[in-house]
Amino acid sequence: MASSDEIDIERVASLARLALSAEEKAEYTKQIGDILRHIEQLKKVDVSAVEPTAHAFPLFNVWREDVPVPSLPVAAALLNAPAQRDHMVSVPKVVE
């Protein structure tokens, strides 16, 4: 298992698309360090012959007939859009 050295908070926050203040960075680095030190104890478990469990019960692909059914009306889908125009979600310019 990885060492319990401080996490690279800048990198992780960037991956998470989360802007953090200097205070938050310091606080989370310390608190997550404490949590990771607790989690370190998982290293003691011999898992060499163990299969991972992603779900408590085996999951299989679920098929259904390809039959059209009513979907959310445009007005309902846009009900919570922070900005909209002409039945579309409006966003800041992506390409100059």
């Binding site: 298992m1 990885a2 989690i39 998982l42 290293k43 478990v45 898992v47 163990v50 299969e51 991972p52 469990t53 992603a54």
Partner: peptide, 16 residues
Amino acid sequence: GYYDAFYLRAQKVRTL
């Protein structure tokens, strides 16, 4: 770099 050490190991412990 951390996936196997943390997430995969946790899923195996979940099995146990």
